[in-house]
């Protein structure tokens, strides 16, 4: 169970219709790989964010599968087309079934 999991996203506040923008996302999460052992030699079980999705007005932008090789505090940068004003919704799925979300509005001028 991960605590203090904080998502952060950077999205421009506005764009021209049809413009491509760069989105950066970061979430604080230990991404316990399942490869480490504790002081007694027992394997620390895997516990990672295993999937990330970004949708804009309910249409898919990117859907990413994360494996244990993704670094702690997973960072992801990608590009999205902005056809109209609306809302980006970002979702991170944890191995322990927790789901973290963030959203950002963008205005098309």
């Amino acid at each position: 169970m991960a605590d203090n999991v904080t998502p952060r996203v950077r999205v421009p506040r506005e764009a021209a219709a049809g413009e491509t923008i760069t989105i950066k996302t970061l979430i604080s999460h230990p991404m316990e790989s399942g490869q480490r052992k504790d002081g007694d030699g027992n394997v620390i079980p895997r516990s990672i964010i295993n999937r990330f999705t970004c949708e804009f007005n309910s249409e898919m932008v990117i859907d990413v599968t994360f494996e244990p090789a993704i670094s702690t505090n997973p960072f992801l940068e990608f590009e999205a087309v902005v056809p109209e004003s609306g809302t980006f919704v970002f979702t991170w799925y944890d191995d322990d079934s927790s789901v973290y979300t963030d959203s950002k509005d963008i205005a098309v001028n």
Binding site: N4, T6, R8, K24, L26, N73, F75
Partner: peptide
């Protein structure tokens, strides 16, 4: 400041 993972902890 976004790429710098240390900055996320300043928010906490």
């Amino acid at each position: 400041d976004f790429e710098n993972p240390g900055m996320i902890f300043t928010e906490a």
